[in-house]
């Protein structure tokens, strides 16, 4: 009969109306500022710079290679290289960014900077409460705002951070081995036996392979 569908629909909406007062399970809304849902691991907003140790200035992984600046599609990254060098996490002297700005009003959260960074220095953040009353200065983040410790990175992207940490540890071991080999090579005749004494097993053959030819050529 004409109109029965409308009656049925109205009964259904009435049931929803009453049900939302009596049945807690129906109300799926979480009231945001008081009750925050933890973001998903893959969520991302804008990039930040990772630093090791506790010193945000000295521990910064970024070496100001400017690859991210060049790759950034909307060109929201601005980097100035430093004049001096300082040792990076492996102890090698590196340049560091004197200025590192990201304009998050321009950034489109594409993550390309993260993908191209050879040093795992820039990662995506999850902080989303970024609103500000200053729409020019407030949205231009400087090096100090961007630098965040590695522990923070581990806390927001645990599985991704574990991979990165393992890789960096392996590289560090490799670099130390290489440095030792070079140090030994320059001090006296090559001593290839020293290299294999370093601890990690997976890094060992590579270290040996890369370290041994070097003295041979000299």
């Amino acid at each position: 009969m004409l109109g029965t569908g409308i009656i049925k629909g109205m009964v259904e909406t009435a049931r929803n109306f009453v049900g939302s007062y009596t049945d807690e399970a129906r109300l799926t809304t979480s009231e945001y500022p008081e009750e925050k849902l933890s973001p998903k691991e893959n969520a991302r907003t804008f990039p930040f710079l990772v630093f090791d140790t506790t010193d945000s200035a000295a521990g910064l992984r970024c070496v100001a290679c400017q690859i991210c600046e060049k790759e950034c599609p909307p060109k929201c990254i601005y980097i100035e290289k430093s004049k001096t060098k300082k040792p990076d996490y492996t102890g090698k002297p590196q340049l560091f960014p004197a200025v590192f700005d990201i304009d998050i009003s321009v950034c489109m959260s594409c993550q390309i900077c993260v993908e191209v960074c050879p040093f795992d220095a820039i990662k995506m953040d999850q902080a989303f409460e970024l609103s500000t009353s200053d729409r020019f200065g407030g949205l231009l983040l400087h090096k100090e705002d961007l630098a965040k410790p590695n522990d923070y990175y581990i806390s927001i992207h645990p599985s991704e951070a574990r991979e990165v940490d393992e890789r960096l540890a392996a590289e560090k071991v490799k670099a130390e081995a290489k440095a030792k080999a070079e140090a030994a090579g320059s001090a006296s005749e090559p001593k290839p036996a020293i290299a294999p004494t370093t601890k990690p097993a997976p890094a060992q053959p590579q270290t040996g392979a890369s370290a041994t030819p070097a003295p041979a050529t000299t």
Binding site: T13, N16, F17, G19, S20, Y21, R26, L27, T28, T29, E31
Partner: peptide
Amino acid sequence: ALGRIQNRLGPN
């Protein structure tokens, strides 16, 4: 009322 019909909270 519209909020409650759609199982939302409405203005609060």
